[in-house]
């Protein structure tokens, strides 16, 4: 997976796993077909929301992170795939911290990343994170939060099982490259809705590593994450992602995604 995708990510998956109801001839579907359906879902023109992360250690120690997120879908216009801006509201000593991402549409072009730290009073260009780095100290990595290129894994439909009172496809994705963070991932995807409700992560030894359960909220015709609970089965640590105050298609202006707003430490 390209670095570009890993960064573009950030909250894309949290908020942008949007689903359209469609009718597909199920019998012809392969694992790759199903994953394509998940990836091709529309995401709206823009989104703003509050994202809360609750991190809990195995000993029960809790840490909360609250951010405001602004995302705009450029669909290749002006050379961008999307732009994302977020501001930290909590914890108090990080309040006002801003993070701006320009995801360029051009294949291979490195994303632009800027960080504003109130303590330094300046905006800095930062290097892209590694895919395996923890996202905001959570149990998901930057790779988990992004749209890993489909051709980086082999996808196999291994069955259909009941989930949440409905039927789910179960797709196993195995990385093609050596040295991947995971030995395999197993996706539970609602039939006809193309929403992943459960993801199981296995380490290189194929031992269970993490499990992620996702619940969804409907906004207009679009489905968006409401809550995702990620549990590390080996460390006992867990992270709960919650999306609130979600507003879509707000007509967010281009000048929101600039260092001018980054320095303000808060959104409009």
């Amino acid at each position: 997976m390209g670095i570009k995708k890993a960064v573009y990510v950030v909250f894309l998956c949290i908020l942008a796993e949007v689903v359209l109801f469609s009718s597909v001839a199920q019998s012809a579907l392969t694992g790759l077909d199903i994953m394509k359906k998940v990836e091709e879902l529309p995401q709206g023109d823009d989104q703003k929301s509050t994202v809360t992360l609750l991190l809990t250690s195995a000993q029960g120690q809790e840490k909360k992170i609250i951010t405001n997120r602004y995302w705009k879908n450029y669909r290749g216009k002006d050379g961008f795939y999307s732009k994302t801006l977020f501001f930290t509201n909590h914890p108090p000593d990080a309040k006002g911290t801003g993070f701006l991402i320009w995801d360029y549409a051009e294949e291979g072009k490195t994303d632009g990343l800027w960080l504003y730290l109130p303590s330094l009073r300046k905006v800095s260009v930062i290097s892209t994170r590694s895919q395996d780095d923890a996202f905001m100290g959570s149990d998901l990595t930057f790779a988990d939060m992004g749209q890993r290129r489909l051709d980086e894994d082999s996808h196999e439909l291994i069955g259909e099982k009941p989930c949440d009172g409905k039927a789910c496809y179960v797709v196993e994705s195995r990385p093609k490259e050596a040295g991947s963070a995971y030995g395999k991932r197993v996706f539970w995807i609602l039939k006809d809705e193309w929403r992943a409700v459960r993801i199981e992560y296995f380490d290189q030894k194929k031992d269970p590593l993490k499990v992620q359960n996702i619940t969804w909220q409907k906004n207009g015709d679009l489905w968006v994450w409401e809550k995702a609970i990620v549990k590390n089965l080996q460390t006992g640590h867990s992270t709960v992602f919650e999306i609130s105050d979600l507003k879509m298609n707000n007509g967010l202006r281009d000048d929101l995604f600039t260092d001018r707003m980054l320095k303000r430490g808060e959104g409009p």
Binding site: I3, T110, D111, G112, V125, I126, S127, T128, S130
Partner: peptide
């Protein structure tokens, strides 16, 4: 000047 080359930023 600052320029990001992915995992490396030159400035």
């Amino acid at each position: 000047l600052a320029k990001s080359f992915g995992k490396i930023v030159v400035e």
